[in-house]
Design a protein around this nucleic acid. Structure first.
Lengths: 144, 144
DNA sequence: TTTATAAGAGATAAACAACTCTTTTATTCC
DNA sequence: GGAATAAAAGAGTTGTTTATCTCTTATAAA
């Protein structure tokens, strides 16, 4: 569905969002620990998301990552786009470069419906909302 | 969504199905050419699908691949399972091993709905049906 | 029964995704 | 200003997926 990198990115963003709503900032060690990801790897991924302005960072002691109020409206679709590109939302189900309305692959018409639903679901899931149930221990982010 | 290998597999199976309905058998050279895939690679993939009995093969001159009448009811979901396993149909959207009803990830409830729809779509798409429009040039299988 | 043909099998190579480590830069606090 | 801290940046490694080549085995037709 999405790359492993993207899974880490979403999990990290949800965790950071939950922290940020408390007004607190969190570092790479805590993030890696709480979402169960390789530390140096998620660091790279977040570096990229900072450049793309989905998350903020601060260097130095008391530094770390946080999400500003305005950014809590960021959707999971935005994260997927930033990490994996648009393939999931606009690519052909059978990997054809030329697949389109006028030259469809055999599953084109069924596939565009599913694709749209995936997009809607991810677009409606805002990082601020999704992180709500985390605090109440209603949802989880770690592998084991 | 599915692996590149799986995309090739589905395209090949649809092409073979269309040929088989004419009563003709097709070889690896024609398949690779018509679906636009690396020849040796799709050969390996089909080898595997023969072992898993989704398609038939015959060695020697006049040999090749074909799909028996009974196998035309094989669905795209069957092919995906054979090539990629069950990950698409039963895996967590955020890659968590422990994600479940009782310990859900933050998008679990939204995700299982989508997953089910993807499964239904692929399960309903039978290889015999899907290949129908190919002959009429209403759908296509090549990249360019 | 010999020859030609096509799939099967095994081994290898290239490309890409995932992951790790080290050095540099920015910031805070003393 | 100097020490400590944390992210940024760059380089390098590992592992998996995708792709290629060669040799073997089965079969059909001459």
């Amino acid at each position: 569905m999405v790359s492993k990198t993207c899974e880490y990115a979403i999990r990290a963003m949800i965790f950071i969002a939950q922290k940020s709503k408390n007004g607190s900032i969190t570092g790479i060690n805590e993030i890696a620990d709480k979402i169960g990801s390789p530390k140096y790897f998620i660091a790279k991924v977040l570096q990229d998301l900072v450049r793309k302005e989905l998350v903020q960072s601060l260097k130095g002691p008391t530094g770390g990552f946080y999400i500003a109020k305005e950014q809590l409206g960021c959707s999971l679709a935005d994260i997927v786009k930033a990490v994996d590109g648009n393939k999931l939302f606009s690519g052909c189900g059978l990997g054809l470069k030329t697949c389109s309305e006028t030259k469809p692959c055999p599953i084109h018409n069924k596939f565009i419906i599913i694709r749209k639903e995936i997009y809607n679901m991810l677009q409606e899931a805002k990082i601020g909302e999704v992180s709500k149930n985390l605090e109440k221990n209603l949802t989880f982010l770690r592998r084991k």
